[in-house]
Amino acid sequence: MATLHINEERCKGCGFCVMSCPKKALSLAARPNTAGYYPAQCDDEKCIKCGICYTVCPDIVFTITED
């Protein structure tokens, strides 16, 4: 069972992950982080933990752990 973790404070809201997610599981949150960016958020039901978000993210916002 894998878990996707999102480090909101690293996110700059560029949206590359939103554009790249094959399951359209990602979107940008309505509430900004402390830097003022709108961070990525994930609909966990759609997420298949494929890691593409990790691959395209310039800021290493996403990590995936095996529980």
């Binding site: 894998a2 690293r10 298949i48 890691g51 800021d59 290493i60 990590t63 095996e66």
Partner: peptide, 16 residues
């Protein structure tokens, strides 16, 4: 299908 991904040690600190 699932992979594990972690932050590389060299990039633990965020960049600008």
């Amino acid at each position: 299908m699932a992979v594990t991904k972690s932050v590389p040690r060299l990039l633990e600190n965020p960049h600008t």
